[in-house]
Protein backbone atom coordinates (compact mmCIF):
# COMPACT_ATOMS: atom_id res chain seq x y z
CA UNK A 1 0.00 0.00 0.00
CA UNK A 2 1.48 3.31 -0.95
CA UNK A 3 0.76 6.68 0.56
CA UNK A 4 -1.76 7.41 -2.13
CA UNK A 5 -3.87 4.37 -1.14
CA UNK A 6 -3.60 5.18 2.53
CA UNK A 7 -4.77 8.73 1.90
CA UNK A 8 -7.71 7.45 -0.14
CA UNK A 9 -8.76 5.03 2.60
CA UNK A 10 -8.47 7.72 5.24
CA UNK A 11 -10.45 10.14 3.13
CA UNK A 12 -13.15 7.54 2.41
CA UNK A 13 -13.22 6.77 6.12
CA UNK A 14 -13.70 10.41 6.90
CA UNK A 15 -16.45 10.81 4.31
CA UNK A 16 -18.16 7.70 5.68
CA UNK A 17 -17.87 8.95 9.25
CA UNK A 18 -19.31 12.31 8.23
CA UNK A 19 -22.09 10.46 6.40
CA UNK A 20 -22.90 8.47 9.51
CA UNK A 21 -22.86 11.55 11.72
CA UNK A 22 -25.14 13.36 9.24
CA UNK A 23 -27.76 10.62 9.35
CA UNK A 24 -28.09 10.92 13.13
CA UNK A 25 -31.39 12.80 13.53
CA UNK A 26 -30.31 14.67 16.65
CA UNK A 27 -27.71 17.46 16.66
CA UNK A 28 -24.19 16.21 17.22
CA UNK A 29 -20.75 17.80 17.65
CA UNK A 30 -17.30 16.23 17.50
CA UNK A 31 -14.92 18.17 19.74
CA UNK A 32 -11.19 17.81 20.30
CA UNK A 33 -9.66 17.85 23.77
CA UNK A 34 -9.46 21.65 23.70
CA UNK A 35 -13.22 21.80 22.94
CA UNK A 36 -12.69 23.04 19.38
CA UNK A 37 -15.39 21.83 16.99
CA UNK A 38 -13.94 19.23 14.61
CA UNK A 39 -17.20 18.32 12.99
CA UNK A 40 -20.93 18.90 13.28
CA UNK A 41 -23.91 17.24 11.64
CA UNK A 42 -26.77 18.68 9.58
CA UNK A 43 -29.22 18.36 12.45
CA UNK A 44 -26.98 20.65 14.52
CA UNK A 45 -26.93 23.38 11.86
CA UNK A 46 -30.67 23.10 11.34
CA UNK A 47 -31.77 22.99 14.98
CA UNK A 48 -29.59 25.86 16.12
CA UNK A 49 -29.87 27.84 12.86
CA UNK A 50 -26.10 28.19 12.35
CA UNK A 51 -23.74 27.93 9.40
CA UNK A 52 -21.08 25.26 8.81
CA UNK A 53 -18.33 27.85 8.22
CA UNK A 54 -19.07 29.67 11.45
CA UNK A 55 -18.96 26.42 13.39
CA UNK A 56 -16.13 24.12 12.32
CA UNK A 57 -12.76 25.07 13.85
CA UNK A 58 -14.34 27.35 16.45
CA UNK A 59 -14.06 26.89 20.16
CA UNK A 60 -17.36 25.56 21.57
CA UNK A 61 -17.85 28.51 23.92
CA UNK A 62 -17.22 31.04 21.12
CA UNK A 63 -19.86 29.55 18.80
CA UNK A 64 -22.65 31.90 17.79
CA UNK A 65 -21.46 34.86 19.89
CA UNK A 66 -20.96 32.66 22.92
CA UNK A 67 -24.46 31.18 22.94
CA UNK A 68 -23.04 27.82 24.03
CA UNK A 69 -21.16 29.35 26.93
CA UNK A 70 -23.67 27.87 29.36
CA UNK A 71 -22.67 27.45 33.02
CA UNK A 72 -24.27 23.98 33.21
CA UNK A 73 -22.45 22.89 30.05
CA UNK A 74 -19.13 24.25 31.36
CA UNK A 75 -19.61 22.22 34.52
CA UNK A 76 -20.47 19.10 32.53
CA UNK A 77 -17.48 19.34 30.19
CA UNK A 78 -15.00 20.75 32.71
CA UNK A 79 -15.78 18.67 35.80
CA UNK A 80 -17.91 15.67 34.97
CA UNK A 81 -16.38 14.47 31.70
CA UNK A 82 -12.74 14.26 32.85
CA UNK A 83 -13.81 11.92 35.67
CA UNK A 84 -16.02 9.60 33.63
CA UNK A 85 -15.91 8.34 30.09
CA UNK A 86 -19.55 9.15 29.35
CA UNK A 87 -22.39 11.32 30.54
CA UNK A 88 -25.85 10.34 29.36
CA UNK A 89 -28.97 12.53 29.13
CA UNK A 90 -27.75 15.48 31.16
CA UNK A 91 -30.63 17.99 31.14
CA UNK A 92 -29.77 21.58 30.25
CA UNK A 93 -32.15 24.51 29.83
CA UNK A 94 -30.94 27.56 27.97
CA UNK A 95 -32.42 30.63 26.38
CA UNK A 96 -30.77 31.09 22.97
CA UNK A 97 -30.71 34.64 21.55
CA UNK A 98 -32.33 33.78 18.20
CA UNK A 99 -34.17 30.49 18.59
CA UNK A 100 -35.52 31.01 22.10
CA UNK A 101 -35.71 28.73 25.11
CA UNK A 102 -34.60 25.15 24.58
CA UNK A 103 -34.64 22.17 26.89
CA UNK A 104 -31.93 19.71 25.86
CA UNK A 105 -30.58 16.34 26.89
CA UNK A 106 -26.81 16.23 26.44
CA UNK A 107 -24.90 13.01 26.01
CA UNK A 108 -21.10 13.23 25.91
CA UNK A 109 -18.72 10.36 25.20
CA UNK A 110 -14.93 10.47 25.07
CA UNK A 111 -13.33 8.53 22.21
CA UNK A 112 -9.63 7.74 22.51
CA UNK A 113 -7.48 7.47 19.44
CA UNK A 114 -5.13 4.48 20.11
CA UNK A 115 -2.36 5.89 17.87
CA UNK A 116 -2.46 9.21 19.53
CA UNK A 117 -2.51 10.53 23.08
CA UNK A 118 -5.22 13.02 22.20
CA UNK A 119 -8.86 12.17 22.37
CA UNK A 120 -12.09 13.32 20.77
CA UNK A 121 -15.44 13.90 22.34
CA UNK A 122 -18.84 13.19 20.81
CA UNK A 123 -21.50 15.53 22.11
CA UNK A 124 -25.08 14.78 21.15
CA UNK A 125 -27.80 17.25 21.89
CA UNK A 126 -31.41 16.04 21.95
CA UNK A 127 -33.88 18.90 21.77
CA UNK A 128 -36.75 17.91 24.09
CA UNK A 129 -38.42 21.34 24.22
CA UNK A 130 -41.52 20.10 22.36
CA UNK A 131 -41.58 16.80 24.16
CA UNK A 132 -41.41 18.54 27.57
CA UNK A 133 -44.25 20.86 26.62
CA UNK A 134 -46.37 17.94 25.40
CA UNK A 135 -45.65 15.99 28.60
CA UNK A 136 -46.75 18.97 30.70
CA UNK A 137 -49.92 19.30 28.62
CA UNK A 138 -50.61 15.58 28.96
CA UNK A 139 -50.12 15.81 32.72
CA UNK A 140 -52.66 18.66 32.90
CA UNK A 141 -55.23 16.83 30.77
CA UNK A 142 -54.72 13.64 32.75
CA UNK A 143 -55.19 15.51 36.03
CA UNK A 144 -58.43 17.01 34.76
CA UNK A 145 -59.64 13.59 33.63
CA UNK A 146 -58.88 12.09 37.04
CA UNK A 147 -60.82 14.91 38.68
CA UNK A 148 -63.81 14.40 36.38
CA UNK A 149 -63.82 10.67 36.94
CA UNK A 150 -64.01 11.15 40.72
CA UNK A 151 -66.78 13.70 40.26
CA UNK A 152 -68.81 11.30 38.13
CA UNK A 153 -68.37 8.58 40.74
CA UNK A 154 -69.49 11.10 43.37
CA UNK A 155 -72.58 11.77 41.30
CA UNK A 156 -73.37 8.06 40.94
CA UNK A 157 -72.91 7.54 44.68
CA UNK A 158 -75.28 10.41 45.44
CA UNK A 159 -77.89 9.09 42.96
CA UNK A 160 -77.75 5.61 44.51
CA UNK A 161 -78.10 7.06 47.98
CA UNK A 162 -80.91 9.40 46.96
CA UNK A 163 -83.06 6.89 45.10
CA UNK A 164 -85.81 5.76 47.45
CA UNK A 165 -85.23 2.34 48.99
CA UNK A 166 -87.82 2.49 51.79
CA UNK A 167 -90.98 0.48 51.15
CA UNK A 168 -90.07 -0.59 47.60
CA UNK A 169 -88.85 -3.92 46.26
CA UNK A 170 -85.28 -4.50 45.15
CA UNK A 171 -86.45 -4.64 41.54
CA UNK A 172 -88.25 -1.31 41.82
CA UNK A 173 -85.21 0.29 43.38
CA UNK A 174 -82.99 -1.08 40.63
CA UNK A 175 -85.28 0.18 37.84
CA UNK A 176 -85.48 3.65 39.38
CA UNK A 177 -81.73 3.87 39.99
CA UNK A 178 -80.70 2.56 36.57
CA UNK A 179 -83.10 4.98 34.85
CA UNK A 180 -81.45 7.93 36.59
CA UNK A 181 -77.98 6.54 35.96
CA UNK A 182 -78.85 6.30 32.26
CA UNK A 183 -79.96 9.95 32.27
CA UNK A 184 -76.58 10.93 33.76
CA UNK A 185 -74.71 8.72 31.27
CA UNK A 186 -76.66 10.22 28.35
CA UNK A 187 -75.91 13.74 29.56
CA UNK A 188 -72.23 12.88 29.89
CA UNK A 189 -72.21 11.44 26.38
CA UNK A 190 -73.86 14.48 24.84
CA UNK A 191 -71.72 16.97 26.79
CA UNK A 192 -68.48 15.27 25.77
CA UNK A 193 -69.56 14.57 22.21
CA UNK A 194 -67.47 16.03 19.43
CA UNK A 195 -70.23 15.61 16.85
CA UNK A 196 -72.20 18.70 17.85
CA UNK A 197 -74.67 16.66 19.90
CA UNK A 198 -74.74 19.26 22.66
CA UNK A 199 -78.02 20.67 21.36
CA UNK A 200 -81.37 20.68 23.16
CA UNK A 201 -82.80 18.84 20.16
CA UNK A 202 -80.38 15.92 20.56
CA UNK A 203 -80.91 15.89 24.32
CA UNK A 204 -84.73 15.75 24.10
CA UNK A 205 -84.54 12.98 21.49
CA UNK A 206 -82.15 10.96 23.62
CA UNK A 207 -83.95 11.49 26.96
CA UNK A 208 -87.41 10.61 25.62
CA UNK A 209 -86.36 7.64 23.47
CA UNK A 210 -86.83 4.93 26.17
CA UNK A 211 -90.40 6.20 26.69
CA UNK A 212 -91.42 6.28 23.00
CA UNK A 213 -93.52 3.12 23.08
CA UNK A 214 -95.33 4.20 19.88
CA UNK A 215 -94.25 6.84 17.32
CA UNK A 216 -96.80 9.38 18.56
CA UNK A 217 -96.30 8.90 22.31
CA UNK A 218 -93.96 11.84 22.81
CA UNK A 219 -94.22 14.58 20.20
CA UNK A 220 -91.48 17.16 19.88
CA UNK A 221 -92.97 20.23 18.19
CA UNK A 222 -90.79 22.38 15.91
CA UNK A 223 -88.58 24.50 18.16
CA UNK A 224 -85.51 26.70 17.58
CA UNK A 225 -82.03 25.16 17.63
CA UNK A 226 -80.11 25.74 20.87
CA UNK A 227 -76.63 24.70 22.02
CA UNK A 228 -76.35 23.91 25.72
CA UNK A 229 -73.59 24.17 28.32
CA UNK A 230 -72.63 20.86 29.98
CA UNK A 231 -74.27 21.57 33.34
CA UNK A 232 -77.47 22.55 31.52
CA UNK A 233 -77.36 19.22 29.69
CA UNK A 234 -76.98 17.32 32.99
CA UNK A 235 -79.85 19.13 34.72
CA UNK A 236 -82.23 18.99 31.75
CA UNK A 237 -81.45 15.31 31.11
CA UNK A 238 -82.43 14.39 34.67
CA UNK A 239 -85.44 16.70 34.53
CA UNK A 240 -86.80 15.09 31.34
CA UNK A 241 -86.14 11.64 32.76
CA UNK A 242 -88.10 12.39 35.95
CA UNK A 243 -91.00 13.97 34.02
CA UNK A 244 -91.21 10.99 31.67
CA UNK A 245 -90.99 8.49 34.55
CA UNK A 246 -93.81 10.26 36.36
CA UNK A 247 -95.89 10.32 33.15
CA UNK A 248 -95.48 6.55 32.79
CA UNK A 249 -96.34 5.91 36.44
CA UNK A 250 -99.24 8.32 37.03
CA UNK A 251 -99.74 10.52 33.97
CA UNK A 252 -100.62 10.44 30.28
CA UNK A 253 -98.17 7.65 29.41
CA UNK A 254 -99.97 5.28 31.78
CA UNK A 255 -102.87 5.18 29.26
CA UNK A 256 -102.62 3.70 25.72
CA UNK A 257 -103.87 6.90 24.01
CA UNK A 258 -101.91 9.33 26.14
CA UNK A 259 -99.39 11.72 24.63
CA UNK A 260 -96.79 14.24 25.72
CA UNK A 261 -96.03 17.36 23.70
CA UNK A 262 -92.68 19.09 24.14
CA UNK A 263 -91.78 22.47 22.71
CA UNK A 264 -89.45 25.30 23.61
CA UNK A 265 -88.58 28.84 22.68
CA UNK A 266 -85.67 31.15 23.37
CA UNK A 267 -86.42 34.63 24.65
CA UNK A 268 -83.68 36.90 23.37
CA UNK A 269 -82.49 40.02 25.16
CA UNK A 270 -79.83 41.04 27.68
CA UNK A 271 -80.66 37.95 29.73
CA UNK A 272 -81.80 35.27 27.27
CA UNK A 273 -84.20 32.66 28.65
CA UNK A 274 -85.12 29.16 27.60
CA UNK A 275 -88.83 28.32 28.05
CA UNK A 276 -89.57 24.65 27.69
CA UNK A 277 -93.06 23.26 28.02
CA UNK A 278 -94.15 19.70 28.73
CA UNK A 279 -97.86 19.04 28.17
CA UNK A 280 -99.60 15.73 28.81
CA UNK A 281 -103.00 14.77 27.43
CA UNK A 282 -105.18 11.69 26.95
CA UNK A 283 -104.30 10.14 30.30
CA UNK A 284 -106.40 9.42 33.37
CA UNK A 285 -107.82 12.44 35.28
CA UNK A 286 -105.02 14.16 37.14
CA UNK A 287 -105.05 14.78 40.88
CA UNK A 288 -102.42 16.75 42.70
CA UNK A 289 -100.34 14.31 44.77
CA UNK A 290 -100.77 14.64 48.53
CA UNK A 291 -97.03 14.71 49.19
CA UNK A 292 -94.14 15.56 46.92
CA UNK A 293 -91.67 12.74 46.42
CA UNK A 294 -87.99 12.84 45.77
CA UNK A 295 -88.61 12.91 42.01
CA UNK A 296 -90.48 16.22 42.28
CA UNK A 297 -87.77 17.60 44.56
CA UNK A 298 -85.14 16.47 42.02
CA UNK A 299 -87.06 18.26 39.25
CA UNK A 300 -87.11 21.53 41.21
CA UNK A 301 -83.52 21.24 42.37
CA UNK A 302 -82.15 20.27 38.94
CA UNK A 303 -83.35 23.56 37.51
CA UNK A 304 -83.21 25.93 40.48
CA UNK A 305 -79.96 24.98 42.21
CA UNK A 306 -77.27 26.01 39.81
CA UNK A 307 -79.08 26.89 36.63
CA UNK A 308 -80.96 29.57 38.60
CA UNK A 309 -84.19 28.69 36.77
CA UNK A 310 -87.58 27.50 37.93
CA UNK A 311 -90.16 24.84 37.19
CA UNK A 312 -93.88 25.37 37.45
CA UNK A 313 -95.81 22.13 37.79
CA UNK A 314 -99.48 22.32 36.95
CA UNK A 315 -101.79 19.46 37.87
CA UNK A 316 -104.64 20.16 35.42
CA UNK A 317 -107.37 17.50 35.46
CA UNK A 318 -107.04 16.98 31.66
CA UNK A 319 -103.30 16.51 31.85
CA UNK A 320 -100.17 17.41 33.83
CA UNK A 321 -98.13 20.38 32.57
CA UNK A 322 -94.68 21.68 33.40
CA UNK A 323 -93.15 25.02 32.37
CA UNK A 324 -89.40 25.19 32.74
CA UNK A 325 -87.60 28.52 32.58
CA UNK A 326 -83.79 28.56 32.48
CA UNK A 327 -81.61 31.68 32.16
CA UNK A 328 -79.12 30.92 29.39
CA UNK A 329 -75.48 31.64 30.00
CA UNK A 330 -73.30 33.01 27.22
CA UNK A 331 -71.89 29.53 26.68
CA UNK A 332 -75.32 28.37 25.55
CA UNK A 333 -76.00 30.55 22.56
CA UNK A 334 -78.64 30.01 19.93
CA UNK A 335 -76.90 28.96 16.74
Amino acid sequence: MDLEDLYRILRTGHVQAQGIVDTVPDPMLVLDSALTVQSANRAFFRTFAVDRYDTIGQHLYDLGNGQWDIPELRRLLGEVIPKSSAVIDYKVEHDFPHIGKKIMLLTARTVFNPDNVSHLMLLSIVDITDRSRKEAEFEAVFGELRHRLKNVLGLVRALANQTKAEGVSGEEYRTAFLGRLQAVADANDLALSDHGDDSLDALVARATKPFQTAPETIIVEPSPPLTLASKEIMSLSLLLHELATNAVKYGALSAPAGTVRIRWEVEQGDHPLLRLSWRESGGPPVRKPASTGYGTQLIQFAIAYNLGGNVEQNYRTEGFEAEIVVPLERAARPD
Binding site: L155, L159, Q162
Partner: peptide
Protein backbone atom coordinates in the same frame (compact mmCIF):
# COMPACT_ATOMS: atom_id res chain seq x y z
CA UNK B 1 -71.97 23.08 42.79
CA UNK B 2 -73.28 19.68 41.68
CA UNK B 3 -76.93 19.61 42.75
CA UNK B 4 -77.30 15.87 43.26
CA UNK B 5 -74.17 15.69 45.41
CA UNK B 6 -75.29 18.79 47.35
CA UNK B 7 -78.69 17.18 48.07
CA UNK B 8 -76.98 13.98 49.15
CA UNK B 9 -74.58 15.73 51.54
CA UNK B 10 -77.50 17.63 53.05
CA UNK B 11 -79.50 14.46 53.67
CA UNK B 12 -76.52 12.63 55.17
CA UNK B 13 -75.56 15.50 57.47
CA UNK B 14 -79.14 16.03 58.62
CA UNK B 15 -79.36 12.35 59.42
CA UNK B 16 -76.19 12.78 61.49
CA UNK B 17 -77.96 15.49 63.51
CA UNK B 18 -76.62 18.67 61.88
CA UNK B 19 -78.62 21.69 60.82
CA UNK B 20 -77.50 22.52 57.29
CA UNK B 21 -76.89 26.05 56.00
CA UNK B 22 -77.39 25.92 52.25
CA UNK B 23 -76.35 23.94 50.34
CA UNK B 24 -75.22 26.69 47.96
CA UNK B 25 -73.55 26.34 44.56
Amino acid sequence: DEFIIAMDLKVILERLGWRVLGPVP
